[in-house]
């Protein structure tokens, strides 16, 4: 389990430092209210970056050769589709099966692969999520409405500055013969973090 990087410190890019400095100043002076700011940002959550990761997952479901390449070298396989991280991050794909469910924690600084996954959810930044996800992943998943059979092992992956994870959720039943485009619509951001499952086709109908 990759939890042995406690010696590493966090880092913020120059631009993140500028944005945080502004936020602190404007909060101190009463011009902005951080909870209201988070709420506003949450409404744009899905607007950050295209759902590149969903296309990657859909292709892996539909194309066994691509799936093999993705599991062997996710960085290269994702780059095949034209999605390249800004800082050349190393991506690792971890696959859910009926025996194992993967979830990713640690998205607090620049280690979140937003070029693939889009904007991290606001709740993701909270300290309790990360510490609880490590200690009680089943409990955290239950809060997200995901209950897994007892015999499914839950693996928790902690991103680092060097390695970021993409969860490949299980392909939903009843999607035989679907196009990659339709499959991609079933792949939610949360399913690629591991705090959700891919939508089942019936859910998609009702959401549409």
């Amino acid at each position: 389990m990759p939890h042995n990087h406690d010696h590493e410190h966090s880092e913020l890019s120059d631009i993140e430092l500028r944005v945080r400095a502004l936020e602190t100043l404007l909060t101190d002076k009463g011009y902005i209210d951080p909870p209201a700011l988070d709420a506003l940002i949450e409404t744009y959550e899905t607007k950050v970056g295209p759902k590149n990761g969903a296309k990657v997952v859909a292709k892996a479901w539909a194309d066994p050769d691509y799936r093999t390449r993705l599991m062997e070298d996710a960085t290269a396989a994702i780059a095949e589709l034209g999605f390249v991280g800004r800082q050349g991050e190393h991506m690792v794909a971890v696959e859910n099966t009926d025996k194992a469910h993967n979830m990713v924690v640690c998205t607090l600084c620049s280690c979140y692969p937003w070029t693939v996954l889009g904007l991290p959810p606001v709740w993701y930044k909270s300290a309790p999520y990360r510490s609880r996800a490590v200690r009680d992943p089943r409990g955290v998943l239950a809060e997200f409405g995901v209950s897994l059979p007892e015999d499914v092992e839950i693996k928790v992956w902690d991103s680092t500055a060097e390695v970021r994870y993409l969860v490949v959720p299980e392909r939903p039943q009843g999607t035989d013969g679907w196009s990659e485009e339709n499959l991609a619509d079933l792949v939610t951001r949360d399913s690629m973090i591991g705090t959700g499952l891919a939508l089942d086709p019936a859910q998609k109908e009702s959401a549409a």
Binding site: E16, I32, L37, Y44, V48, G49, R86
Partner: peptide, 23 residues
């Protein structure tokens, strides 16, 4: 007609600008 962003900080600076205006 909604804004699109390429990085989380962009959404943040956008939202701060909207709030500064609203205040």
């Amino acid at each position: 007609g909604g804004p699109v962003f390429e990085a989380p900080w962009q959404a943040r600076v956008f939202a701060m600008t909207v709030q500064a205006h609203e205040s």
